[in-house]
């Protein structure tokens, strides 16, 4: 497999508070604070973490829907090596034909004042790719592929359910045949039964159209179902990246362990013993020194409070940012036979 995207040292800092009428910001929220990883062509990379850990911001920064404060993003396409961070507006618009996004809330991501045909066809019009009858045909084709009834294309989004709306949003993202798609919590707003349909649809489309996904989610079961590799974010930094199985069975970071223990069991009689984190998540405007997780980590030592751990390889394809990763033996998500059931 070849590398599709190379993200190195991306930071997104938002100014907060003002010292005066036209004053300088009083501080910065470090939503994403120095994140580096690569995405391989054709894979699905999961991105998990609790609310406020910077998942969505990172996803948007990769597309430059939010301008990253610093860092570089390189996109490899047909032998070309494009530096996404240095593109001007016009080049960026062309870039977005290859990088798209599916949003969390299908109710706010579709303009209620446009028919489904107009919504799906908008990228074709805006990029002057197709219009008229050709546009209609292409909309029909992608809509069919996304499981929409072509007879409903003249309707408005308000006539559709959440799952159907998400299919419309997927069709819109796919109509220009992009290579890479950021799925920003693409299923979290849907019913569980619908979630499965949409996840299956994404899987099918990935094979048919050879897509690469960055799958942002907080539902660990959904992530396990679709992702080849998973990265875990905490407070703007990546604490662990590993192939899905490795991460779920043998987490190497204490934060991942806590996440895994919180996966709900499908068996109501089974007793759950989540390892609960204590204390508040520190503010990203004022992160703690050393390891960002040290304030809530039960294994933390003095070293953790002073030195920032770097993301280092610990097994094949398994990276972790923890000083004690070598010596800790952590609890995985579930037993092997249970995973086989998924």
């Amino acid at each position: 497999m070849s590398v599709l995207l190379e993200i190195s040292d991306i930071k997104v800092h938002f100014p907060v508070g003002k010292t005066g009428f036209f004053g300088r910001p009083a501080g910065y929220v470090r939503a994403v604070d120095g994140v580096s990883f690569t995405i391989e062509a054709g894979e699905t990379l999961g991105l998990v973490g609790e609310s406020g850990s910077g998942k969505t911001t990172l996803g948007r920064a990769i597309l430059r829907a939010i301008e990253p404060t610093s860092g570089t993003i390189r996109f490899h396409k047909d032998g070309q090596d494009i530096d996404v961070t240095s593109l001007n507006n016009k080049q960026l618009r062309a870039m977005w034909r290859d990088m798209q996004m599916i949003f969390q809330d299908p109710y706010s991501s579709l303009n209620p004042r446009m028919t489904v045909r107009d919504v799906i066809g908008e990228p074709l019009l805006a990029n002057k790719v197709a219009k008229g009858e050709e546009l209609k045909q292409r909309v029909k084709q992608i809509a069919t592929q996304c499981g929409l009834d072509v007879e409903h294309l003249s309707r408005y989004p308000h006539a559709f359910s959440g799952g159907q709306r998400q299919r419309i949003a997927i069709a819109r993202a796919l109509i220009l045949h992009p290579e890479f798609i950021v799925c920003d919590e693409a299923v979290s707003a849907l019913d569980v039964s619908i979630q499965a349909q949409i996840l299956n649809l994404l899987k099918e489309l990935q094979i048919d159209l050879s897509l690469t996904f960055l799958f942002i989610a907080h539902d660990l079961a959904a992530v396990a179902y679709v992702c080849d590799r998973v990265e875990v974010m905490y407070l703007g930094t990546i604490v662990e990246i590993a192939p899905t199985e490795g991460l779920y069975y043998t987490p190497r970071h204490p934060y991942t362990e806590a996440l895994m223990s919180a996966i709900p069991e499908a068996d109501p009689t089974k007793e759950m013993t989540p390892y609960l984190l204590t204390g508040e998540r520190p503010s990203p405007a004022n992160p703690p020194d050393g390891c960002r997780f040290n304030t809530r980590c039960r294994y933390a030592t003095d070293l953790c409070r002073t030195d920032v751990p770097l993301l280092t390889p610990i097994a094949s394809n398994h990276f972790v940012a923890c000083h004690h990763a070598e010596i800790l033996s952590l609890q995985g998500a579930m037993d092997h036979e249970e995973v086989a059931l998924i």
Partner: peptide, 14 residues
């Protein structure tokens, strides 16, 4: 701030 505005931007709208 609506998602559909961002979606329009990503669709290549000026």
């Amino acid at each position: 701030e609506e998602d559909f505005t961002l979606a329009a931007k990503l669709s290549g709208c000026s």
